[in-house]
Deep mutational scan, measured.
Amino acid sequence: MDETGKELVLALYDYQEKSPREVTMKKGDILTLLNSTNKDSWKVEVKITVNGKTYERQGFVPAAYVKKL
């Protein structure tokens, strides 16, 4: 869990989004878990840094590609 009590997951593999509802992640990324009720895909939040500014983006990733921490 992070400092706000949200559950975290670790990306086990790289994943490139295939639709606007998904998010891209790299192996080793730590993501905030938002919903894990679907056995196939979990909703997560990723933090992306562009030019020194951090943005948050929500979307789905394959459940088999992440592990709860």
Rank of each mutant, 00 (worst) to 15 (best):
E22P: 06
A64V: 09
K67Q: 12
T32M: 10
T54F: 08
Y13K: 11
Y15W: 06
N38T: 05
V46P: 00
K67P: 02
R57A: 06
L12S: 01
T49G: 03
E22Q: 06
P62Y: 06
D14Q: 03
G52M: 04
E3G: 14
V61A: 01
V44S: 00
W42Y: 05
V61F: 02
N38I: 05
S36G: 10
L33T: 01
S41Y: 15
K53G: 07
K27W: 04
V9G: 09
M25L: 10
V9L: 11
K26C: 11
V23N: 01
L33R: 01
S36R: 07
V9F: 04
R21N: 15
L69S: 02
K6G: 11
K43V: 13
S19E: 09
T49H: 10
R21W: 15
G59D: 00
K6E: 09
F60S: 03
R57V: 08
K43D: 01
F60H: 05
D40P: 02
I30R: 03
T4S: 13
K39P: 15
R21K: 11
S19Q: 06
T24N: 05
K43I: 14
D29E: 08
T24E: 02
D40R: 11
D2T: 13
G59N: 00
L31A: 07
G5Q: 13
T49R: 09
A11I: 05
S19F: 07
N35S: 12
E45V: 14
V61Y: 01
G28P: 00
W42C: 04
K26S: 07
K39A: 13
K67Y: 09
W42P: 00
Y55L: 09
E45L: 15
R57E: 01
Q58W: 07
D2L: 14
K39Q: 11
L69G: 01
Y15L: 02
E17I: 05
Y55K: 06
Q16F: 14
I48N: 05
N35I: 07
E56N: 15
G52P: 00
V66K: 02
P20T: 09
V46Y: 09
Q16E: 14
E22C: 09
Q16C: 12
N51Q: 09
I30E: 01
R57Q: 05
V66S: 00
L12T: 04
Y65H: 05
V46M: 10
E3F: 14
A64F: 08
D2G: 14
L31P: 00
K47E: 07
Q58G: 03
K67C: 15
P20Y: 08
A64R: 13
I48Y: 13
K53W: 10
V9S: 01
P62D: 04
K39G: 10
M1Y: 12
